[in-house]
Amino acid sequence: MKTIVDLQRIYFKYDNEDFWILEDVNLTLKEGDYLIIVGPNGGGKTTLIKAMLGLLTPTKGLVNLNIKQSDIGYLPQYISLKRDFPIKVKDVILLGLPRGKVFSNEYFEEIVSELKISELLHKRVSELSGGQLQRVLLARAVISKPRLLILDEPTSNIDPYGTFCFFSYLEKLNKYMTIVMVTHNLGLIMSGVKSVACVNRKLIFMDKPQINQEMIELMYGVHDQHSCHLGQYLHDEIEHISRGGII
């Protein structure tokens, strides 16, 4: 499989800070991967994908992106958007198309029907709920059929049924898109996900949809009785979801 993104020994800190947000992070994404990045708040998950996307330049290390920038689809965090902007849902989706690229009606219909947003197309963005907006932004991210799809906390405002539909569609998209998704919700490690990276300043990679004790320790501190209980709880929850249970 062809390498899509290769992060080599990435270190990152903000100009006015003296501690590393990311430290010696290595990660390789290959075509067809479906990676979920988990970790606690402030652990550097969003920083990591921003480095991948070229929105932040690492303090040290190399980011090798082996696809064109226009081959990336991105769903930003919900909070980063201007909700009062005068724009219709349909126009938001079409903004995802590169300049001059014509969209196929058939694919457009498929996206809006899979994401259950057909009824919203002529509404203003300000009229949408948080969950609806996130589905619309996923539609924008995939309308150009990108080779790499990066999602930052995509289901934080979506209800359980919406989340289920969202993930079912991602599984279909993964047939022709490499997917990277950031979340702090470990319950989202569900069917379709192929690998997990745990980030809390450092990164631990697991090439199957599981988390291990080492990852729990990285996320929540030293190995103790508390983290063991937490680990067991998370393990049970993930098992439940992978057997088809809804969060």
Binding site: L55, S70, Y74, P76, L81, K82, I87, V92, L95, P98
Partner: peptide, 18 residues
């Protein structure tokens, strides 16, 4: 026009898509 709308609506996304 499309560029102005995209950049005004979502700067980060505009950067990402080039």
């Amino acid at each position: 026009y499309k560029t102005v709308v995209l950049v005004s609506f979502d700067k980060d996304y505009s950067r990402v898509v080039g």
